[in-house]
Amino acid sequence: MSTISREEVARLAALARIDLTDLELTRLAGELDVIVESVARVSEIATADVPATSHPLPLTNVFREDVPEEPLPVADALAAAPAAEGGRFSVPQILEED
């Protein structure tokens, strides 16, 4: 399978929003290469005729009725916020649009 370059790790780290030091980038590139090497084996037996399993036990149609319950008190909601203002969570300026 494809080997994982330092640049690839940097791209993934950006996707995963994790700042990595140069040291970490280099080390992870090496480690992930070995790991991916070994986990890539799965494709040996994952043939087209085998269905994928995403849930260990097959359940379907688990619903709740549309009945509101007591919400979290706003004080509890904000208690752990690094910063808050006027009942809202305060976050640093957002540059990108979503």
């Binding site: 909601a77 203002e85 006027g86 009942g87 809202r88 969570f89 305060s90 976050v91 640093p92 300026q93 957002i94 540059l95 649009e97």
Partner: peptide
């Protein structure tokens, strides 16, 4: 968004 110093989030 632009020129804002910070944002307040209501969920």
């Amino acid at each position: 968004i632009h020129g804002a110093e910070y944002s307040l989030v209501d969920y």
